[in-house]
Design a protein around this nucleic acid. Sequence first.
DNA 1: TTATAGGATGTTAGCGCTCACACTATTAGG
DNA 2: CCTAATAGTGTGAGCGCTAACATCCTATAA
Lengths: 352, 352
Amino acid sequence: MTSEVESSRRASIYDVAREAGVSHMTVSRVLNDHPNIREATKKRVLEAIKVTNYTPSSIARALATQKAMRIGVLVDSPVQYGPNSTLRALESAARQHGYVISSVSFSAPGDGEEVEDGIAELVTQGIDAICVIAPRLSSLDKVRRKAPGLPTVIVQSEPATEMHTVSVDQRSGAESAVKHLIELGHTSILHLAGPMDWHDSRVRAQAFQETLEAAGLVSAPPIIGDWSSDSGYDVGKSADLGDATAIFASNDQMALGLIHGLQERGLKVPDDMSIVGFDDLPDARHFLPPLTTIRQNFSDLGIQVIELLVRAIEGGVSPYARELIEPKLMIRLSTGAPPKTPRAGALAQAGR
Amino acid sequence: MTSEVESSRRASIYDVAREAGVSHMTVSRVLNDHPNIREATKKRVLEAIKVTNYTPSSIARALATQKAMRIGVLVDSPVQYGPNSTLRALESAARQHGYVISSVSFSAPGDGEEVEDGIAELVTQGIDAICVIAPRLSSLDKVRRKAPGLPTVIVQSEPATEMHTVSVDQRSGAESAVKHLIELGHTSILHLAGPMDWHDSRVRAQAFQETLEAAGLVSAPPIIGDWSSDSGYDVGKSADLGDATAIFASNDQMALGLIHGLQERGLKVPDDMSIVGFDDLPDARHFLPPLTTIRQNFSDLGIQVIELLVRAIEGGVSPYARELIEPKLMIRLSTGAPPKTPRAGALAQAGR
DNA sequence: TTATAGGATGTTAGCGCTCACACTATTAGG
DNA sequence: CCTAATAGTGTGAGCGCTAACATCCTATAA
């Protein structure tokens, strides 16, 4: 057995072939588990692989097969808990199927070209499918226009589209949040929404309104935040809250800031004001008070996306699928019955 | 000008060449900004690129040049704020230099092979350099053994190593946290540490001890948590806290849980107990009370890592570098002067 | 004008792999 | 014992690109 060559170069399939005394093709067959390889030959090749410290080059393989075994993910705001969790889930689900992922992210509000550029970059890298986690409304059309004939799925509860869609059921989540508040006896409920160019934000806001109306309650227009706890804080501290006794915040972070701001104003949660969030951050259960919120199962989401994509890549074109994942209400201490006596001073004094 | 071919295949450099009426090599030269291309020709090629909707294949380019323009990142626990932020920072810094990143992550406690497997997978993908964000002690040796002759940097405040190292100065961070408590007048300070197989955790714990001793105070052995807010909660609720009036938690999440647990025990922060965290999560300023903590600049860290790596890839072997980034103390409301009257009952009654 | 430098382009090979096919051993069937 | 099938292996080409060299232009100088 020739000894390991002390070369800085990575061993190629030919090096292994020489070492094993076979042709490169035999090595390739062993690598790909082809049938019709004599057991003894296989063993010799495996040995040679070990000796040469060989690792197959997926680059060369991708070029030869025209399949990169790579899924491109375009993701907006990956620092946020939701997108980040989805990304992790995608990565691990993809690996199960032998795929790797490449992600391109942009957090900037958007100079308008990020989506196009991102997709172009992914295509350049060489991918077999695209997943877009672009929760902004504006992104969607761009994806549609730019989609380069690759299987594509959008992570978004888009009503109707000519693309695959996977998402957590935002409507149902928001609905159960609001229903929970109604059942506790609240009749004046406010909504702190995310930016209105985010799809999830719109759906939650709409579900909020409809659920309220279905219960015969009036719904004030939502207050608009920007997902950050800072924006929640501002609202909690100084927004005009009318006679509201409960607020449904569109994510946990804003809920956190809200509670903080409310406290500065002299309002206790849940005694004076009930708060429910959305996301169930891992830390939400240790907020003060622990936050009632809606848990989204991102791991399931990732699995569904990858399965859809892999099927589309390998199987061919299925009809456009639309998967919905059911979220779950986590009841904790930030919600309770409305206060008996309507507070008069607290809100007025806070003023503008 | 030939019209755009309605083929499902991606256009290759030859398609562009035919369209422009030049050889493929001329196209390649335009693509790579070679000098000595006539302006008119260049324009024609650019036109053809647009017409054919051509995107270069970095796979083919990688094969031809033997440079993948890809940096592999091996990352432990990417759901945690720190690692995730670092990852984002790396991605964006890499893009500045024309590189993309591939990350392989593992969150499992570790069956022992994740590091080896992860590196092997990255090598297979084809990478020019490796960055390891593996904060566990045990990982390090494995990286060392497995490192396949590629430029490698470890994100970790490792005392001495034969690899490049970039990190936030954990020691200095912990030191300023403890000093802050001492200056406030605390004399009995506890430390809630992270798992002891995490390097950062060890360094912070050690700095805690040394700073205390340097001030002539006694240091109790640290209480060990697992980074989660849950573990902080348990400690806050039922650990034996002696006569401590302040706790330095090794991350913000544990600090959050700690405050929650403390409250259940009937202890107020900062009146009865001062708390300082580590990380400065974006939400930490809205904890109740807003958390005094140590801010780490992950973006700087990412930039430094990539610059080191790119230099190593392109420049050759520089001596092993060791970059340190200075963290910053953020003073908020979770710390204050120690209570005047020593509390007797509160801690005893909490018991186990 | 003609040689000549160098600017502008084309040609060929090869990166590491797989595919399609060709070929050689083996075995089974008549 | 020979043919035919099949198991096992090898050969050549080509995936899309770039490096290196070859060739062709064009301007300038002698």
